[in-house]
Design a binder for these strands. Structure first.
Lengths: 253, 253
DNA sequence: TAGTGGTCTAGACCACCTG
DNA sequence: AGGTGGTCTAGACCACTAC
């Protein structure tokens, strides 16, 4: 392959002042990411070596390494001992945008929408009680929403909040969304476990999502925990598989 | 919550000699992970602070931090400034094992099996050519396998290899598996993009997986790249959703 | 005020790759 | 042999949390 000469970019491009409150390595990572996505560092281009870069930027080598590692984790850069650091070749960097169904819906002209179907306190089922770590039959808040994109139904979202957070009202939900409402209550999410699967749509889901009875749906179950390890939210979501899929980049370390 | 006194574990437990070739931080991370999963560090337990730990172990603080970070990323530990580092509370650490359908199949008494359905050179379809970055109609190797667990059909795996790797034979595939065969050819995987979705089973898939016609299947598409950014493999896999799901832990940074 | 993790520095030595 | 990233050290200062 061959990267040829290393590409030298100006310091002010690599360390943008955009977010002066961010840490050094975050700023550097942002500068590098922009350089890659803008094409200033085209696919296959070689970066300066870490030591030269750290001297030119006036930061230490571990700081440079941390920024580069961030982009390696995102799949934009590749590092090889004895070789150097390169922008990932060819299609990968571009493909991320092309095939991004997820982002398509959030941006790209699609108008996201939400319809609240239910917001009620109900006794916890055994599954919900287990997931939230509360007593069986404890009063939890059940939220059911229909998510739309361009007025096309995309997903049925069913969430449960533990008793301590069960006072969320519809106004807050509409204004800030579920996670926004939690955040304004001082809840800080730290860890989540999720599982992605598939099954037949229930009759109600088929009706809401405009599918035929028994059509496949993509499901995602998630339990989120705050800094204390207390369960904050359990959700069972169900997506129209022709309009939604989960994408991710895996990086070898 | 409250973590109380920090739990002090012996140095030899935290830095096991098991893998003396591994790096320091990997060994420490392994020692800590064992302490958590074995219960020596029960849920909610507080670790020694980083400086005390580094002095007692005779390693530097960044090394301790890197090991701890690894476990934070795995969702086993939680760090908070001014507070300390704790084992994730309650159900999380345990739940990871309980709900691990993925690991259940690889271990836990299940006997994994594979049946090669096809191993043939075929002209690349437009999709495959795009994914592998080869010319349309180029000769690629198509591999179709049925994956079994305890003789129950679990998934249909369909993989494509580019012309340069199309000489993989059935013996190698049986002995080392697909990724093993690639590795023995000197291929090092670095990055992969994957997408998880759902759809109806084709009639053939339904027959192979012992499903009714049109039943839902869980699908995973993956394109893997080597260090040069060249596509090494494209796969379209399709799983029985009642026997398989994808699990992951998300960590806030 | 005391203690914690979060960030950053300035260097050292090593393992690996290319010529 | 020379250059690259990979690992590790020994320290500094800061921001946040508890008391």
């Amino acid at each position: 392959m061959e990267g040829g000469e290393a590409v030298i970019l100006p310091v002010e491009q690599l360390l943008p002042d955009r977010a002066p409150l961010a840490t050094l390595w975050v700023r550097l990572a942002a500068g590098l990411e922009d350089a890659v996505t803008s094409g200033a560092l085209p696919p296959g281009a070689r970066l300066e070596n870490e030591i030269a870069l750290s001297e030119r930027l006036g930061v230490s080598r571990p700081t440079v390494r941390r920024a580069i590692q961030e982009l390696v984790d995102k799949g934009l850069l590749v590092r090889r001992r004895g070789i150097g650091t390169q922008v990932v070749h060819g299609s990968v960097a571009r493909q991320i945008e092309l095939t991004s169904l997820f982002d398509d819906l959030a941006s790209a002209g699609k108008v996201p929408g939400t319809r609240v179907l239910e917001l009620a306190k109900v006794p916890a089922t055994p599954l919900v009680a287990t997931q939230l770590g509360v007593a069986p039959e404890a009063e939890v808040l059940r939220i059911r929403r229909l998510r739309l994109a361009d007025d096309v139904p995309l997903a049925v979202l069913q969430n449960y909040l533990p008793p301590a957070l069960a006072d969320l009202d519809e106004q807050e939900l509409a204004d800030a969304g579920l996670y926004g409402g939690l955040r304004s209550r001082g809840v800080v999410l730290r860890v989540a476990r999720q599982r992605i699967g598939a099954r037949k749509a229930t009759n109600e889901e088929a009706r809401l999502l405009d599918l035929t009875r028994g059509a496949p749906v993509l499901t995602m179950d998630r339990t989120a925990y705050d800094a204390d390890g207390a369960a904050v939210e359990y959700g069972h979501h169900c997506y129209r598989p022709d309009l939604y899929s989960f994408e991710m980049t895996l990086v070898d370390r």
